[in-house]
Design a protein around this nucleic acid. Structure first.
Lengths: 342, 342
DNA sequence: TTGTAAGCGTTATCAG
DNA sequence: CTGATAACGCTTACAA
C-alpha cells in the first residue's frame, strides 16, 4: 500500500480511501491511485484488516460430526449464506460424546471469530456466557442449556408424534422407539412426541420398548435383539434419527415389522420397502442460522434471542403396512462384504 | 497484555516471554507474571499474532460440495489432523460446474490462509501459480492441471478396471458406463479403466454405451432411457461415482441388470440386491492431505511435489449376477413420496 | 534476565 | 479533499 501511495504521489490514507470507495477523493486523484493500484497489482492484507477491527469475517461452525449427512447439509446452508456476504466458515467436529465440547469450542472462540453457529453435544453450555456479549451465538438443531441464545430447531415433538400416530392409524398397538440418547434434546423431544401419540390413542407407554444407544452397528444390533425378545413382540418401530435408521435397517433385515423414521436420507426411498420418514430441512436450518448471525452482526440492536421451530412433514412411502400385512424388511441378498463405513 | 505487565510490574515483553514459555525468565518473575495472567484472565489475541507473522493457522478446504458424503468424509479427515495441530479448517463449496472455481478460490486465498487443500472442479488451475510459492497447495481426489503440486488420489483406473473385469468374469459382454463428465479427471480415469478391462477381454468399446451427465435425477433418467433403448441391450452397468449411483439406482428400479459401482455409500449393502462397489477411503485422503500440508509448513525444504495414489478394493455383494440369472433391481414399493433431497 | 523500540498493514482521528 | 500520526496486540532485534 505504501508502494502504491508513493507511485501515485499520495499518502497511504488516500490509497485506502480510493480502495474503499470513499467519496471524498478528487476524480483526478482517484484516477492516479487506481492506476497505481492496478500497476502494482495491489492486494489488501486481510490479516491486517481483521486485526485492526478486532474481528474476523469468519463464522465458526461446530457440529457433532461433519461427515454426518445431516450436519453436512447444515454446513452447506451456512456456507451458502456466508459466501454471499463475503464471510468464511470455519468448521469443527465436536465428536458425539460431549466431553470435548467445551475445550474445542473455547479454542475456536479464542481465534476471534465473528460469530459461532453450533449444534451442541454437551449437556450444558453455561461456559459460553463469558462469550455471549462478544459475538453472536446461534444454535442449530439443538437448543442450548444454561445460556440464552438464538436457536433454530425442527419440530421434533410434532414430527415424532405424527409418525407414531401414523403407525397407530395403520393398526399398530405395540410400537418400539429406537434412538440415540435422552441427553440429546432432539431425541428427548422425539421421545415426548412418541409418548404423546401413544397417550392420545390411549395406548400404554412401556419403558421396555424404548431402546437407546442405537447409533452404531453394535448398538443397533442390541436394539434389534431387544425387539425380538420383547413379549409380546412389537409390530412396529419408530426410529428417532437418521444415524440410527441407517444402522438399524441392516440389523432388521428379514424381520416383519412396520417402520417409520425421523430424518430422510439418500436411498431411503429406494430401500425395499421404501421407508416412510419425517422429512427435515437441514439446509434451511443452516441458512437461517447464518442469516441470523449476519443480522446480529449488523444491527447493534439488542433484540431478545428467539427460538424458531421449523415444521417437518411426513413422507409416506411403503414401510408402514398394517400388522396383518407386514412384509419382510430389507431382504438380505449380500453374499459377502459389510455395509459402508459409516 | 499491557495490563498484565503493569499488574506484575514488568514489561510486556516479559509477559510475552512467560506466556510463550521462554526459558530466560527468573522463576520469581515468572511466578508474578503467571499470577497476573491468571488474575486478569488474559487471553492472547490470535488476530494480532497471526497478523504479525503474516499467516494464519488455517487450512482452506475447497471441494465441489460439502454436502456430498464423499467430500464431507474428506473434510472430516482434514479436520481431524488439523485439530491435532491446533489448526482450523475453512471450508468452501465450489459448485459442480467449475466456472466459479477461480473466483471463489482467489478470494479464499486473499484471506492469507496458511495452506489450501482442494478438489478442483475447473479444467485448469494455472491461475494458482501466482500463489504456489506463498503457501502449500495440496490437491485431493483430482489432480491439478496447469500447475504442479502435491496430490492424493484413489486408484481410479485400477478400480474401474477391476470392477469392469468382475462383470466380465460374471459373463457380461455388453456393459454400459454411466458417470459424471469426462472433464473431471476421476471420471476420465475410470472410463480408461473400463476400456482397459474391455480390451483385455477382447470386447469392443462402444461409445453408445457411455452415458455421461448422470449425476442428477434427470440425467440418470436419461441414462436409464438410453440403456433401455440400446440394441442389443446391455446386461450390466458400471456406475462411475457414488453421486451417479445414488440417482441411477432409483432410475433403474425394476430392470434386470447387473450393476457395479465406484464408491461405497451408506445403505449400498442394504439395497436389494446389495450393491457390489469399489471402496474408497476419503477419510484417509483428507488425513494424508492435511499431513502433507503440515509437513510442507514445517520443513522449508523444497521437496519435489508428489502424486500419491491410494489403493481401492472391490467389495463383492449381490448386484453382479450372471446375465442368465438376473433379478429385478431395487423393486419399487413406494406408493407415494419421492427420494430424499440429495 | 529484562527492557526498549520498532514494525507488521490498515484505518480513524484530526488537522491542514 | 488530503495527509500526518497514532493505534490495534504481539514479537523480534537489539540494548542494557
Amino acid at each position: 500500500m505504501r508502494d502504491v501511495a508513493r507511485q501515485a504521489g499520495v499518502s497511504v490514507k488516500t490509497v485506502s480511501r480510493v480502495f474503499n470507495e470513499d467519496r471524498h477523493v478528487l476524480p483526478e486523484t482517484r484516477r492516479r491511485v487506481e492506476e497505481a493500484l492496478a500497476a502494482l497489482n495491489y492486494t489488501p492484507n486481510m490479516l491486517a484488516r481483521t486485526f485492526r477491527d478486532g474481528r474476523s469475517p469468519v463464522i465458526g461452525l461446530a457440529v457433532p460430526s461433519i461427515s454426518d449427512p445431516f450436519f453436512a447439509a447444515i454446513a452447506d446452508g451456512v456456507e451458502q449464506v456466508a459466501a454471499q456476504h463475503d464471510m468464511s466458515v470455519l468448521i469443527t467436529s465436536l465428536g458425539a460424546e460431549g466431553a470435548r465440547e467445551e475445550g474445542i469450542v473455547e479454542s475456536l472462540l479464542r481465534r476471534q471469530l465473528g460469530a459461532l453457529v453450533m449444534a451442541p453435544t454437551a449437556t450444558d453450555q453455561g461456559y459460553l456466557s463469558r462469550w455471549s456479549s462478544k459475538l453472536p451465538l446461534v444454535f442449530v438443531d439443538r437448543p442450548p442449556r444454561g445460556i440464552d441464545a438464538d436457536c433454530f430447531v425442527e419440530d421434533d415433538l410434532g414430527g415424532a408424534r405424527t409418525a407414531t400416530a401414523h403407525l397407530i392409524d395403520r393398526g399398530h398397538r405395540r410400537i418400539a422407539f429406537v434412538g440415540n440418547s435422552e441427553d440429546i434434546s432432539t431425541t428427548a423431544n422425539r421421545l415426548h412426541g412418541y409418548r404423546a401419540a401413544l397417550e392420545e390413542a390411549g395406548l400404554p407407554f412401556e419403558r421396555d420398548l424404548v431402546l437407546l444407544g442405537a447409533t452404531t452397528a453394535a448398538g443397533a444390533g442390541r436394539a434389534a435383539a431387544a425387539l425380538a425378545a420383547a413379549d409380546p413382540a412389537p409390530t412396529a418401530v419408530f426410529s428417532s434419527d437418521a444415524q440410527t435408521t441407517m444402522v438399524l435397517v441392516p440389523a432388521l433385515s428379514g424381520r416383519r415389522l412396520a417402520i417409520a423414521a425421523f430424518g430422510d436420507f439418500p436411498m431411503a426411498a429406494t430401500l425395499s420397502p421404501a421407508l416412510t420418514v419425517v422429512d427435515q430441512d437441514p439446509d434451511a436450518l443452516g441458512r437461517l442460522a447464518a442469516q441470523r448471525v449476519l443480522h446480529r452482526l449488523e444491527g447493534d440492536d439488542r433484540e431478545p434471542s428467539s427460538l424458531v421451530t421449523l415444521p417437518v412433514r411426513l413422507i409416506e412411502r411403503a414401510s408402514c403396512r398394517p400388522p396383518h400385512d407386514l412384509v419382510e424388511l430389507f431382504p438380505s441378498t449380500t453374499p459377502s462384504g459389510g455395509d459402508a463405513r459409516s
